[in-house]
Design a protein around this nucleic acid. Sequence first.
DNA 1: AAAAAATTTAAACAAACATTTAAAATATTT
DNA 2: AAATATTTTAAATGTTTGTTTAAATTTTTT
Lengths: 205, 205
Amino acid sequence: MSKVDQSTECKIREAAKRVFLRKGFGSATTRDIAESAETNIALVNYYFRSKERLFQEIFRESFVETFVPVARILNDDLPLEAKIYKFVDHMTELLKRDPLLPMFVLSEMRGENSEFCETMAELHDVSSNRFKIQLEEEAAKGNIRNIDFDQVEVSLMSMVIFPFISMNMLKIKKNMTTEQFYSFVDDRKKTIPEMILTYLRHPGK
Amino acid sequence: MSKVDQSTECKIREAAKRVFLRKGFGSATTRDIAESAETNIALVNYYFRSKERLFQEIFRESFVETFVPVARILNDDLPLEAKIYKFVDHMTELLKRDPLLPMFVLSEMRGENSEFCETMAELHDVSSNRFKIQLEEEAAKGNIRNIDFDQVEVSLMSMVIFPFISMNMLKIKKNMTTEQFYSFVDDRKKTIPEMILTYLRHPGK
DNA sequence: AAAAAATTTAAACAAACATTTAAAATATTT
DNA sequence: AAATATTTTAAATGTTTGTTTAAATTTTTT
């Protein structure tokens, strides 16, 4: 083996993450996971009790992994411009390492009463939103236009995350290789902050 | 019944769309669909041969339904500003009627070699992109900044579609009712074009 | 080194699944 | 109205699913 030896439990967890992220809960099977971990299906249940429990672990882990960095950077003590650039850069790098993460989390949350919505509601961090306060202060000082914070935040998230959600579609439509896609999202590290900041700095009618 | 009588085939097709959009291919079962259509499972196979074939029909239909209007409006013969406003407005109304459509299409296309990527590749419309030409002409005339078209197009799509992809997440995070969510995306009919147009009209450094 | 605990294996399990069959019921054609 | 085609039903098919069992093996403890 090229990689160092791992515990069976760890091999199964990593295999489960691979399989769940690629196929989602419904299409992934215990056998898929066991095969990908190079063990047998009994061990999956031996270490994790059930497919559902294993999935819950992966889901929570992935959710935290994806959205905790978001909150952390946006609550950083940085000037507005630097913060937005840093946010887009860090999120892009995170998603380049794990491009299937947002689709995984969000696809399990569709359908009004998905069981994973509850898991998400639990994990949902309601910590003070320093970013919102910052934008309101800047607006009060007249440095940026008066805005609806949610609109700006959602636009920022959309522009960073959506390209990864629609990655395969984009690659087909624009005839991109994986390298070209990564180069494309790297370019967005400039485009997105410019677009947001230009909007903020120029008052509406 | 409140609705007029429908053929069994039609009832099954509509039930299949409901179920597939909510659960995805993997988690949806023939029994779900039969129950939702108020028939028995044998009729699903009688009319559509297999779950896979039925899914393919729904997928193609949904794909066309979602992305043909996009191409149509962007190739319209309209001034830039009017076109962007019209695009956001029409897409938002389309997605308000069928909020699960983009997640459905895109989630089945994840995983490098998803079988539905091929279906999508077939359906992919390579018709001339009047919108791209239009932006290049406006840039040549000096009316807007020099831009990477793909960056602008993806940003536009992202800001319109992503809120629907992350609808349930957003509703939990922002503590929104469905009505409030719809009101939020209605507000975006102004925000998104303003953001795009402000960016286009103000030259970069 | 013996005993105990933890891990791994192969096989089996019942439940859920997509699909098929054959007969019954209904609608259409002759 | 008889014959034919279509639609519907209920039951059974074989397969795949998640999960369990019990024995074999390895590791750890005594």
